[in-house]
Measured scan of single mutants.
Amino acid sequence: ETQAGIKEEIRRQEFLLNSLHRDLQGGIKDLSKEERLWEVQRILTALKRKLR
């Protein structure tokens, strides 16, 4: 995994995270989306740690 590859994956995950946040802010309670949001946040945290 290169730095560029990790950064690209971070961009993808952040896009997905923002999309999930928008969907959930629409007021629709969706447990699967909430679980996915937490999963994406965990992935992002792990990726950012790899960059250090």
Rank of each mutant, 00 (worst) to 15 (best):
10 I>D: 01
18 N>Y: 11
7 K>C: 15
14 E>T: 07
49 R>F: 05
49 R>N: 13
40 V>W: 02
8 E>Y: 03
11 R>I: 06
32 S>E: 13
41 Q>R: 11
49 R>D: 14
40 V>M: 03
32 S>P: 05
2 T>S: 09
19 S>A: 13
49 R>M: 09
35 E>V: 08
27 G>M: 05
34 E>G: 04
49 R>A: 14
25 Q>G: 04
39 E>S: 02
12 R>F: 07
30 D>S: 04
4 A>K: 09
41 Q>D: 04
45 T>M: 09
8 E>F: 02
50 K>Y: 05
29 K>C: 14
35 E>T: 09
1 E>L: 11
18 N>K: 12
28 I>A: 08
16 L>S: 00
32 S>R: 12
33 K>Q: 07
26 G>E: 07
10 I>M: 02
21 H>A: 12
24 L>F: 04
19 S>I: 13
12 R>V: 05
46 A>G: 06
50 K>E: 06
35 E>H: 10
18 N>A: 14
43 I>F: 08
10 I>P: 00
30 D>G: 03
21 H>G: 05
14 E>R: 05
17 L>T: 02
50 K>F: 05
50 K>T: 04
8 E>N: 06
48 K>R: 13
35 E>A: 11
21 H>I: 15
27 G>K: 04
33 K>I: 15
21 H>M: 15
12 R>M: 06
13 Q>M: 15
37 L>F: 12
40 V>R: 00
52 R>Y: 10
33 K>C: 11
41 Q>G: 03
42 R>G: 05
18 N>F: 08
46 A>H: 07
49 R>V: 12
29 K>M: 09
41 Q>F: 11
50 K>A: 11
20 L>I: 06
31 L>W: 07
9 E>I: 04
30 D>A: 02
4 A>H: 09
31 L>R: 13
5 G>V: 11
17 L>E: 08
48 K>H: 06
21 H>N: 09
49 R>E: 14
47 L>W: 00
15 F>H: 15
8 E>D: 09
3 Q>E: 11
39 E>C: 06
47 L>H: 00
6 I>D: 01
48 K>L: 10
46 A>W: 09
32 S>K: 12
51 L>S: 01
1 E>K: 09
1 E>Y: 07
12 R>C: 14
15 F>A: 15
48 K>S: 02
26 G>R: 09
28 I>K: 09
20 L>W: 01
5 G>T: 12
33 K>M: 11
47 L>P: 00
51 L>I: 04
6 I>A: 01
20 L>Y: 02
17 L>Q: 04
16 L>Q: 02
26 G>M: 09
22 R>L: 11
39 E>N: 03
5 G>C: 15
11 R>M: 08
48 K>Q: 06
38 W>N: 13
21 H>L: 15
37 L>Y: 15
10 I>N: 01
39 E>M: 05
8 E>H: 04
34 E>Y: 15
43 I>E: 07
43 I>G: 03
3 Q>A: 12
30 D>N: 04
31 L>E: 12
29 K>R: 12
16 L>M: 03
11 R>Q: 06
29 K>A: 10
50 K>V: 06
44 L>G: 00
37 L>K: 03
33 K>L: 15
36 R>T: 06
33 K>E: 02
13 Q>P: 02
45 T>H: 12
49 R>P: 00
8 E>M: 07
8 E>C: 12
44 L>C: 02
12 R>G: 01
52 R>Q: 11
23 D>A: 12
31 L>V: 13
50 K>W: 04
47 L>Q: 00
21 H>V: 15
8 E>V: 03
18 N>T: 08
4 A>Y: 07
39 E>P: 00
37 L>W: 07
29 K>D: 08
23 D>N: 04
36 R>G: 03
2 T>P: 05
4 A>C: 14
25 Q>E: 13
41 Q>H: 07
42 R>A: 10
46 A>S: 06
12 R>S: 03
28 I>S: 08
39 E>K: 04
11 R>H: 04
13 Q>C: 15
51 L>M: 04
6 I>V: 03
1 E>D: 12
48 K>P: 00
45 T>L: 11
26 G>C: 13
5 G>H: 12
1 E>P: 05
43 I>Q: 06
30 D>E: 04
12 R>W: 06
14 E>H: 08
37 L>R: 03
15 F>Q: 15
48 K>W: 10
18 N>C: 15
7 K>D: 03
28 I>E: 11
19 S>R: 07
9 E>D: 05
35 E>M: 12
3 Q>L: 15
4 A>Q: 10
30 D>H: 04
8 E>G: 03
36 R>A: 13
48 K>M: 08
44 L>M: 01
31 L>C: 12
30 D>I: 03
37 L>N: 01
48 K>N: 06
31 L>M: 07
7 K>P: 02
40 V>P: 00
16 L>I: 13
48 K>I: 11
42 R>N: 09
15 F>M: 15
52 R>H: 12
38 W>S: 12
47 L>R: 00
2 T>M: 09
39 E>G: 02
17 L>Y: 11
10 I>S: 01
19 S>M: 14
33 K>H: 07
19 S>C: 13
40 V>C: 04
23 D>V: 06
15 F>E: 15
49 R>H: 11
5 G>P: 03
24 L>I: 07
43 I>V: 07
32 S>C: 12
2 T>W: 13
6 I>R: 00
3 Q>G: 04
9 E>W: 06
23 D>Q: 11
6 I>S: 01
33 K>F: 10
24 L>K: 03
41 Q>I: 15
31 L>P: 14
14 E>G: 01
24 L>D: 02
43 I>D: 03
10 I>Y: 01
